[in-house]
Design a protein around this nucleic acid. Structure first.
Length: 464
RNA sequence: GGAGAGGUGGCUGAGUGGUCGAUAGCGGCGGUUUGCUAAACCGCUGUACGGGUAACUCCGUACCGGGGGUUCGAAUCCCCCCCUCUCCGCCA
């Protein structure tokens, strides 16, 4: 459920605003400097592997040239940095000596020397700042590395089906799609959504509202029991946070709505705010893994999706989502990723919906994910005679987001810090799970059975 | 939205232009003492980048909410922004 885009760019998190391309050396305190440098070391030491990975990821030619530029830029950047540091050392010496010197003439001489060093520093600073800024921009465009077991292929057809669970139901009547069911039973009003807001918006009504809430409660209950902390998140976030997570809020192809005259965007998923929650922090190892289950509205422009398959609720501009998010040690992320997948399967299996699990191939991973699994639920009304449609997605982003958002932890009993790993996974996306339920549980009489696990919450067994 | 007060190292809290990366206390680590624990005493105690080293270590640069400015020199002065607290207003 992460928008696919190869346009990943870096940015500072919250407090580190207005990062400009012309910032001088001293402002490297904006932790960006340090953060991307580690990544840079990896890129420099493994340039061929990184290049192969970019190709596997099916990145644009621009990203490949960004990699070339990074490699070209480095030696110049480093020598300039050393020159700047050397100059600054001399400036510090002179300034210190000036403070000590009480004799007027000698003091004046020191001040003069300081002035001259200063003017020298201005030019050198500017040169370094330009090189460093370019380096960061290019570096931030490179995608994460890829899990060795992930299938390598350019397009989504290359993803591998790991298993199918549950058999698609055989109907003894012609099944209808959710749009028709929603209309007949007065559950979903697309016309009103179009009127008030525009195409891609809708009203849920009557039992659809109860179903929506019951599903949220159901997912929340399961995940809270599994140790996830429930959170209701903001639906807006700063551009810097979006970029840290790996979204690209700017440009024509963006999936993101921006709020005019502000640096805020409507979130496309609670992944953004849940990940941003701990931006700039150094977490305690004992507190890891931190597991959250967040509820938010999700807003997506679906730019470039015009004409793509999907009617009704499948591809909408706003929906509600219950989302898992975790911060872990590097050692634990793989296991937590499998745990998230297990929860997703447990949720959909518990709802009695047939689904299949996909191991997403390299070309379809997007920028941040190291590995990704999707659940596709059977949707009888989709396509000619029913199709599987994506309902969840869980990604292991390793340290990709943590590096950009500066989220580290202090290993107990060791010096220094390490970047955490971040993971996310859909518990339920309320638009698509509604499709699956309405279409799979429809009856010959036009009504819809409520999945057994939701009957208590719904307070009824049948819709309509 | 208006008015005030603040944001300093893991925490508390000094510091208003010149060896301040930053006093002190707490916590933490190491050591001495001790039958064990406690107490007492001594020492150490941030992050990132770069450089040198076989390595411990060492040297340099940057960082006192963020950015910009003044200055030979900024935690300290000026401007903008973000955040927190208090009071007022408004409101679900």
């Amino acid at each position: 459920m992460v928008p696919k885009s190869n346009e990943r760019r870096g940015g500072c998190w919250g407090k580190c605003r207005r990062r400009s391309e012309r910032e001088p050396l001293r402002s490297r305190s904006c932790r960006w400097g340090g953060r991307l440098m580690l990544d840079l070391k990896f890129v420099l030491a493994n340039s061929e592997a990184v290049r192969k990975n970019c190709v596997d990821r099916n990145v644009s030619a621009e990203v490949l040239s960004a990699l070339d530029r990074v490699l070209d830029l480095e030696s110049d950047r480093k020598t300039t940095m050393q020159a700047v540091e050397d100059l600054r050392r001399r400036q510090n010496e002179v300034a210190r000596a000036t403070g000590q010197e009480k004799e007027a003439d000698r003091r004046a001489a020191l001040v003069a020397e300081g002035k001259s060093l200063k003017s020298e520093a201005v030019a050198l600073d500017a040169k370094f700042a330009a090189l460093d800024a370019e380096m960061r921009v290019r570096l931030a465009r490179l995608p994460n590395m890829t899990h060795p077991d992930a299938p390598i292929a350019a397009t989504e057809d290359g993803s591998i089906e790991l298993r199918k669970v549950g058999a698609p139901r055989v109907f003894d009547f012609p099944p209808r799609d959710h749009v028709e069911i929603g209309k007949t039973l007065n559950l979903i009003d697309f016309e009103a959504g179009g009127k008030t807001t525009g195409h891609g918006f809708y009203f849920l009504k009557n039992d659809a509202v109860l179903l929506d809430l019951a599903l949220q409660r159901y997912a929340l209950r399961k995940l809270a029991a599994a140790g996830f902390t429930p959170v209701v998140t903001p639906d807006l976030a700063r551009v810097e946070i979006l970029e840290g997570i790996g979204f690209n809020p700017r440009g024509n192809e963006t999936q993101v709505y921006s709020i005019a005259d502000s640096d805020l965007c409507l979130v496309g998923t609670a992944e953004i705010t849940l990940g941003g929650m701990h931006a700039g922090e150094i977490l305690d190892e004992a507190a890891l893994p931190l597991k959250y289950v967040g509820i938010s509205h999700c807003f997506r422009t679906e730019a470039g999706a015009a004409g793509r398959a999907g009617k009704g609720l499948y591809r909408v501009h706003q929906f509600t989502k219950v989302e898992m998010f975790a911060f872990t040690t590097p050692e634990a992320s793989g296991a937590v990723h499998l745990e998230m997948l297990r929860h997703e399967e447990d949720i959909f299996g518990g709802l009695g919906l047939p689904y299949r699990v996909l191991d997403i191939c390299s070309g379809d991973l997007g920028g941040p994910a190291y590995r990704k699994f999707d659940l596709e639920a059977w949707m009888p009304g989709r396509g000619a005679g029913g199709e599987y449609g994506e309902v969840t997605s869980t990604s292991d982003c390793t340290d990709y987001q943590a590096r950009r958002l500066d989220i580290r932890y202090k290993p107990t009993g060791q010096k220094g810090t390490r970047f955490v790993h971040t993971l996310n996974g859909t518990a339920v996306a309320l638009s698509r799970v509604l499709i699956a339920i309405l279409e799979n549980y429809q009856r010959g009489d036009g009504r819809v059975d409520v999945p057994p696990v939701l009957r208590d919450d719904m307070g009824k067994d049948v819709i309509g």
